[in-house]
């Protein structure tokens, strides 16, 4: 049923154009043969993609970002699953407070989180270490996973776990064979969302990296604030393609809207 009139259709097209414009521009600029930001490009050239290969800085930063996102998303998922089971499956004193604590990184301005982590890590000499970065990223992305896993846990039919228990399954077996498979879409969706969030994180990370652990967004940010050459556009384009691929994968797997709302159903 499409009950949108002509005005709505026009609005929809303009809105979509607005959303796509900056991304299309970045993709377009990355193919320029010139040495400056130019759109539309005067020709098609892979010059600035080849330039990435000559810049080990960007490649190393991308590698660190991938490792960091993988480690942080995994740590956060391992912590969030039991926490979501606790919050979603039982009623106890302090439950609401617990949930508020785990969601609080969404409420505190990121710049405040950044300096808090900087202050803490530098006191213990952990500033710029991979372990420190992983722990801080894990905290920032835990709310995203927790929300998705929690939605999956609360939608769970508790009697399935009870049925398994009555058939002789122990707690761990119930979790592994019944609960985990049932919440798996939420867990995978949460992991991917957390991975992307960590991979793209700038505001907190900019405070707590050192030159040897600089992540891709931080490298790109400092590059943009210093010079304006199309190199950063070609690097951006690669990350856009990467995000797009993940996005389509997630949409097929879980539904993009569900992933980002953290609720609702898809048939």
């Amino acid at each position: 049923m499409n009950r949108n009139g002509a005005f709505s259709k026009a609005f929809n097209i303009l809105f979509c154009a607005f959303m796509l414009a900056p991304i299309v521009v970045v993709l377009g600029v990355s193919f320029t043969p010139e040495g400056f930001l130019e759109f539309p490009p005067s020709g098609i050239s892979l010059r600035w993609y080849e330039a990435i290969l000559d810049n080990p800085d960007f490649i190393q930063a991308a590698w660190i970002s991938l490792q960091l996102a993988f480690a942080a998303a995994t740590v956060a998922t391992l912590l969030a699953i039991p926490a979501a089971l606790a919050i979603g499956q039982s009623r106890f004193r302090g439950r609401d407070a617990l949930q508020a604590i785990f969601l609080s990184p969404l409420m505190v301005p990121t710049v405040v989180l950044g300096i808090a982590f900087l202050r803490f890590l530098s006191l213990f000499g952990l500033n710029g270490t991979f372990a420190g970065l992983t722990a801080c990223h894990a905290i920032i992305i835990t709310p995203f996973i927790l929300r998705l896993v929690l939605a999956a846990v609360t939608g769970l039919d508790m009697s399935a776990a009870r049925a398994a228990e009555s058939l002789g399954a122990g707690r761990w077996t119930v979790f592994r064979r019944i609960t985990l498979p049932a919440i798996l879409p939420g867990v995978v969706g949460g992991w991917v969302l957390a991975f992307i969030t960590s991979f793209d994180e700038l505001t907190v990370t900019v405070f707590i990296v050192n030159p040897s652990t600089t992540t891709l967004p931080v490298r790109m940010f400092s590059h943009i604030t210093q010079t304006t050459d199309p190199l950063v556009a070609s690097v951006s384009s690669v990350t856009v393609i990467f995000s797009l691929a993940l996005m389509i994968l997630v949409d097929r797997l879980y539904g993009l809207d569900r992933l980002l709302i953290g609720e609702g159903k898809k048939a």
Partner: peptide, 19 residues
């Protein structure tokens, strides 16, 4: 504990393992 009682239970919602 429930898992050692060895009772057969049919739940109102059936509680089938959908996966």
């Amino acid at each position: 504990p429930a898992r050692e009682r060895g009772l057969g239970i049919v739940f109102q919602s059936y509680a089938l393992f959908l996966h």
